[in-house]
Design a protein around this nucleic acid. Structure first.
Lengths: 141, 141
DNA sequence: CGTCGCATTGATACTTAAGCTCAACAACGG
DNA sequence: CCGTTGTTGAGCTTAAGTATCAATGCGACG
């Protein structure tokens, strides 16, 4: 029952110091299955400075351990990335759950549009908003 | 040389009052060809309250006269929508220009992924980041 | 195993972006 | 022209993230 070993490894390998606060943040994230805000995370880690939480999350984003999830209303949440690779999000407006997915044909379609416009593609994002399977199952309509 | 007549019409038709501040905002937008922030827009309209600019832009978003453009760095800009319909964005990281595009096969791909996940799709966004044709033409590499 | 350099931390102040409030105002129908 | 009701605007409040800087402690190296 270690503290998110793989992520910790990734920190070390990349040359960052594996400090107690960073462990604590990694640990908190590992034990969360829902997208979180920095505030929420910070509240769960009273011994750790807000600034450090911000810094650590930014770091983890660079390492693709955590990914930023833009919400429909303009808000932002973060989530531990399962794949650790490029992906897109299905965001449930009812329960707030976030599902990652990856579709090469979607990416291909995006690249094609860029090429058509004479655009040199550097990156892209795609977010899908709606109601997830379980919310549909139990919900109204 | 009227003040963005079609947009004004759309306001009236929808039952909103066509007030001087709203005209001013519409006018300012009509004379801008670059994506703008609320701050920039507000600065160009010193006689109009910041809150009104925010409210008007939000209103224009609902009417699809203006669209929200999320940037790669998390920032947000707005732009007068040319098509007035659903579309995606090509955002140049060099000159900041925004190009709209629409691709049914891209949308189809998005819908397919939602269906696969048992997701009831409500809306989606897709932003492409990179360098536009003219920036590539004159630029390095 | 001690110690030293430098990355990291944390309390707090600051910044920027955006939303809220509510009394005053004005569009437009009658 | 008047009244109703949607709209406005100055400033207050919140949220999200950054800057500062002295104190701390990780871990390399001897």
């Amino acid at each position: 029952m270690s503290t998110a070993p793989d992520s910790a490894d990734r920190l070390e390998v990349t040359g960052y110091r594996l400090t107690a606060p960073r462990r604590a943040v990694l640990d908190a994230i590992a034990h969360t299955n829902r997208p979180f805000t920095i505030e929420e995370l910070s509240d769960r880690l009273p011994n750790i400075g807000r600034a450090t939480v911000f810094r650590t999350i930014k770091l983890l984003q660079e390492l693709e351990i955590v990914c930023r999830v833009p919400l429909e209303d303009g808000g932002v949440r973060y989530e531990r990335s399962r794949s650790g690779r490029h992906h897109h999000h299905l965001i449930c407006s009812e329960c707030g759950s976030v599902t990652e997915f990856n579709d090469p044909s979607l990416d291909a379609s995006i690249e094609e549009n860029a090429t058509l416009a004479g655009f040199e593609l550097d990156g892209h994002s795609a977010e899908l908003y709606g109601r997830c399977a379980s919310c549909r199952g139990g919900g109204a309509l």
